[in-house]
Amino acid sequence: MPQSPPVDDLRALIAPYLDMEGPLLPILHAVQAEYGHIPAPAIPVIAETLNLTRAEVHGVVSFYHDFRDAPAGRHVLKICRAEACQAVGGSALSQRALDRLGVDWHGTTADGSITVEPVYCLGLCACGPAVMVDERVHGRVDDTRLDAILQEVRA
């Protein structure tokens, strides 16, 4: 995963979106899917292509929780912190996960295997506590399930 993508690669990545109405979010998602984050050198390229200022593009990137300015760990563990999961022990589960991994919210483990993010609802509120590892969902996660999930991810 190159840190500073060549400008030509970025232009090619962006090109298919230019005919869209309101292309910036789809472009940012595409860049993040390709590079794992929004590399700083991408911002002027996107700005120039869309006829925006760098500050405008940067403002958009920084507004949204999803966009990262540095790559995440190899896997992203999202733990639901919202009310319905709290009603079934979500807070204790979060604490256990953070303790086990030795990180705080948004942190990445020392071995680079997992980044932990809070999420406010995964739509799995009738089977909480809920977590998502990359794009895979898990419901009714108790301590045993959590440990198994963490072990699988770190393997």
Binding site: E21, G22, P23, L25, L50, Y64
Partner: peptide
């Protein structure tokens, strides 16, 4: 179109800004 993790973008005018590619 896919959102980007902002709860407030469920508010309709914030959503429209987001859809246009702006801050929500």
């Amino acid at each position: 179109r896919v959102g980007a993790g902002a709860y407030v973008c469920g508010e309709e005018t914030s959503l429209l800004n987001s859809l246009e590619g702006k801050r929500g």
